[in-house]
Design a protein around this nucleic acid. Structure first.
Length: 601
DNA sequence: CAGGCAATAT
DNA sequence: TATATTGCCT
């Protein structure tokens, strides 16, 4: 598969792009749609005329609802391009946006409004001490801290990530980032709650269904009737009694152009229902029924009825049955192959069913063996991909997640890189992961220049394997802010299944798909790229779930207007912790030329 | 409408 | 990968 050549850098939409796309519970984000982040014009103060200005007005109204912080009054509002740069604050209580004009105001607001904010977005124009203070404070308060900038700067990126920033990127918000943040905040809240409730241990285990919010719900076996189960919508959708839904849906999809679909999908937060995990119990039940009915006669509906398990649907059974039959067919073919050279089995194939046009049914014993599906495995579903950031310079700190970058049809892609799911339990991470130890984990105590990161990141000079090069343990210093990067070749579920509790530790290192040689590592580091979000069609990015009221977001701008000098890019080439998405294409080209052939399958 | 099943999506 | 969904067919 050929990768597109990097096109001209798209003009970023600015915060205005967020207008109207704020997720549920985060509608206030619409208020971000005024002007550019951090250089937002104080239009609202001078009378709103345009729609954009009206949005700003709303912001201004919201500001008015907050007590004025003395710091705000005392600060001289910074100007960017002659206009005041506001600070926008979203509060949990009111879920409205408020603005303050200065970083110091934001700082004092943080101090005063403790616990109120889940996210702070700091617009950094100069990476001055004040914004770093704000960042440090926010991090200390366990607030997800995002730093945006007008011009991506690796040095600053490293700095702020060292300080515990969760994200650093140029100052336009792709709406998907907002969703991503929302999701992150949502999960984080859940985690906190679980910790508080003391139920954080392995909440995913021994459950068949993982709720959309990462909560799991125990599947129940009930002695109900089919009628009861009929209340369950198979597709998780609204199915009309006339059965028209599917047709309508199909038609809609067909009529949607690509843009529409992107729009449609990216604004859906819950689209796919949680996957049913066919664990041992369920599988046993399934097979028992299959046996009872008879393999040749079993049909999805019958099986479904006789299984009598709440919450599974006929469709799921059908899907599973289809899959099982495939397994059976395959295993039977293997058997047949053996039989042809082994007369001992020459008679056993004659019992085989008629429902397959080709292939034959294996013995039930074989079936069950084949159908053992990773007993006791855990699964965290549904997952969501990372938003499309390909036009942004973005760095990730924290429990960053760009996951699910893999697409089945993209096997030919030589490399995928994944930042693992931040919403998974951070304890899942081990030192075995590539780039699992990154600078910001040292926290603010380390001076940027003296930090280990700069030293170890010069992998070019070593032949170490990635995981050794980083040679770091996972330190959960900042519980929510540790960065975990995984670079993998075709490993698709680093953020989910392979990160399940049992698999952690060997998921990457033992994965044959992990195939990074020194050259590739160099490529990665040289381009400072960890995440390849070009892979696949990111238009389908979505979030599977979102809490109802996931986040409080602080958007702060730096009140200093000094313009920091651009660091020499070469000088910072070894900032492996950061992702320069503009270099993705460069990376992928490098990788394509140096990597192994795609899987022949 | 149930079902089979390949292709595809997630 | 496992599971879900879709489309087309019987």
């Amino acid at each position: 598969m050929r990768r597109e050549a990097p096109g001209p850098k798209l003009q970023r939409p600015g915060w205005g792009a967020l207008a109207g796309v704020a997720p549920q519970g985060l509608t206030e984000i619409v208020l971000w749609g005024y002007g550019r982040c951090g250089v937002a014009t104080p239009l609202a103060r001078e009378g709103a005329q345009t729609q954009e200005q009206q949005q700003a007005s709303v912001v201004q109204d919201a500001v008015g609802q907050l007590p004025v912080d003395p710091a705000v009054q005392n600060d001289v509002a910074p100007t960017v391009g002659g206009q005041v740069a506001p600070v926008v604050v979203l509060t949990e209580v009111s879920s409205v946006v408020t603005t303050v004009d200065t970083t110091s105001a934001a700082l004092s607001m943080l101090i005063r409004e403790k616990q109120k904010f889940d996210v702070i977005i700091i617009n950094d124009h100069s990476s001055n001490m004040l914004s770093l203070d704000l960042l440090a404070k926010a991090v200390a308060m366990d607030i997800i801290s995002v730093v945006v900038c007008d011009k991506y700067n690796e040095f600053v990126a490293k700095k702020v990530l060292d300080e515990g920033a969760y994200l650093y990127f140029e100052n336009s918000f792709e709406k998907d980032i907002v969703k991503y943040l929302s999701k992150f905040v949502s999960r984080k809240k859940t985690q906190r709650q679980q910790v508080e409730e003391g139920s954080e241990i392995n909440i995913y285990q021994n459950n068949n269904i993982i709720g959309v919010n990462g909560e799991s719900e125990e599947r129940q076996n009930v002695t109900n009737t089919t009628n009861q189960r009929n209340n369950i919508d198979e597709a998780g959708n609204d199915v009309g009694s006339n059965g028209k839904y599917k047709l309508t849906k199909k038609r809609e999809r067909k009529n949607m152009n690509e843009t529409d679909q992107r729009e449609h999908q990216s604004s859906d937060f819950i689209r796919r229902k949680a996957c049913l995990v066919w664990n041992d119990d369920l599988q046993a039940k399934f097979m028992k029924v299959v046996h009872q009915i008879g393999i040749e006669r079993c049909r999805p509906k019958k099986i479904w009825e006789q299984m009598n398990v709440l919450d599974i649907t006929r469709t799921q059974v059908a899907s599973h049955l289809q899959n099982c039959r495939l397994h059976w067919k395959v295993s039977e073919k293997k058997k047949s192959t053996r039989r042809s050279s082994d007369q001992r089995f020459s008679n056993s194939s004659q019992q085989i069913s008629t429902f397959q046009k080709s292939g034959t049914m294996p013995s039930l014993q074989t079936n069950e063996t084949n159908l053992q599906v990773h007993s006791n495995r855990t699964q965290i579903v549904p997952e969501f991909p990372f938003p499309n950031l390909k036009t942004n310079n973005t760095s990730f700190g924290g429990e960053s997640s760009i996951q699910q970058l893999y697409r089945p049809q993209l096997h030919a892609q030589p490399y995928y890189s994944t930042i693992c799911n931040p919403f998974n339990d951070s304890s899942q991470w081990t030192k075995t992961y590539f780039a699992g130890e990154l600078q910001q984990q040292h926290g603010p105590l380390l001076d940027v220049l003296g930090s280990q990161g700069l030293q170890i990141s010069n992998i070019e000079s070593t032949s170490s394997k990635p995981n050794l090069a980083f040679n770091g343990e996972y330190h959960n210093i900042q519980s929510y802010y540790n960065m975990n990067h995984n670079v993998s070749h075709g490993a698709s579920y680093l953020g989910s299944k392979k990160m399940s509790n049992e698999n952690v530790g060997n998921a990457i290192t033992n994965d044959n798909n992990l195939n990074i040689n020194a050259d590739n590592v160099t490529s990665f580091l040289g381009s400072r790229l960890i995440a390849d979000i070009h892979v696949g069609d990111t238009s389908t990015n979505e979030f599977s779930a979102i809490d109802t009221n996931p986040s409080n977001i602080v958007v702060a701008t730096n009140d200093q207007t000094e313009i920091h000098e651009e660091s020499d890019s070469d000088e910072n080439h070894d900032c492996d912790a950061y992702f320069d998405f503009t270099n993705i294409d460069y990376l992928s080209q490098n990788l394509e030329s140096s990597s192994t052939d795609p899987p022949s399958e």
